[in-house]
């Protein structure tokens, strides 16, 4: 039976006066692919960053097993939305850099890297500098880098965004293989079809709250809809919040000066 791997209990995250996440309770079981689905600004990335440990909750706690997350970060692998590769390093040097910080021996990391590179069909590119890599190659390198130290859970932020069909499929296939081998994957995406295809459980986030947390079939049953798109629209029918210009963190003087030197934009006419 699957065990609870990561637990968020009463988590709230605010930035200045903006509440990015409100009272989130979530249990992530081992050996599952969890899809975080939501629109832009819904709170998916904030939730992922809380799990990754780059953000601390304003309220509540995030635990890994029974330990505080901060002590267990070596058990996580993270692929942020921006792949974050150093272009003056080769693909292998990028991977090795992270593995070394994880405290993994170079030989162990190399063997694992080669295995993963073969799965993603990029073993010939490990010695290439990442400058000039396509988006797909960058994403694959980033994925290998996140896995080379052998994490228990993998966090992916929009891993197939902007990828061609073949690359996106290779990434999805790898994710499924990881799950089949007992790994846990938390997968943030905009694509409902992709979530339905890959994820065991879908968590729908809207305006900083969790609106649904169930398997794709259970979601359809709960909402009485024929497809996930309809179910999503039903669950997120209230207007999505949007950030105003005043929400952007910026010094008062800088904001005033920028506005002073900005000409006015014509009014949008009301529809008749």
């Amino acid at each position: 039976m699957a065990e609870t791997l990561i637990q968020l209990h009463g988590v709230k995250k605010t930035f200045a006066e903006i509440e990015a996440l409100s009272h989130v309770d979530l249990e992530i079981m081992s050996g599952q692919i969890i899809g975080l689905v939501g629109g832009n600004g819904a709170g998916k990335t904030t939730l992922l960053r809380l799990i990754a440990g780059t953000y601390s909750p304003t309220k509540g706690e995030v635990t890994f097993g029974k330990e505080p997350l901060s002590a267990m970060r070596h058990k996580l692998g993270v692929v942020p939305e921006a792949t974050g590769l150093y272009h003056r390093l080769t693909a292998w040097e990028n991977i090795r850099y992270h593995s070394r910080i994880h405290g993994v021996d170079d030989e162990v990391a190399w063997n694992r890297t080669v295995q993963l590179a073969k799965l993603l069909d990029m073993e010939d590119s490990l010695s290439r500098h990442t400058k000039g890599f396509s988006k797909g190659m960058r994403q694959k390198t980033s994925l290998i880098r996140a896995l080379a130290h052998g994490p228990e859970a993998l966090l992916l932020d929009e891993p197939t965004a902007g990828l061609d069909v073949t690359s996106a499929r290779a990434v999805r296939d790898l994710v499924v293989k990881l799950r089949d081998e007992g790994g846990t994957v938390i997968y943030s995406t905009h694509q409902l079809a992709e979530a339905q295809q890959v994820c065991d459980r879908i968590v729908i986030i809207h305006n900083g709250t969790i609106r649904a947390d169930a398997s794709p079939n259970e979601l359809l049953e709960q909402t009485g809809c024929d497809n996930l798109e309809e179910a999503y629209v039903q669950l997120t029918s209230d207007k999505a919040r949007s950030r105003t210009e005043d929400d952007v963190k910026e010094g008062r003087l800088a904001k005033w000066w920028r506005k002073l030197l900005t000409s006015s934009t014509p009014e949008v006419a009301e529809d008749e």
Binding site: G53, R73, V79, H102
Partner: peptide, 9 residues
């Protein structure tokens, strides 16, 4: 965009 990956380590 390389800093976020580094901060996750």
């Amino acid at each position: 965009g390389t800093l976020e990956a580094l901060l996750c380590l």
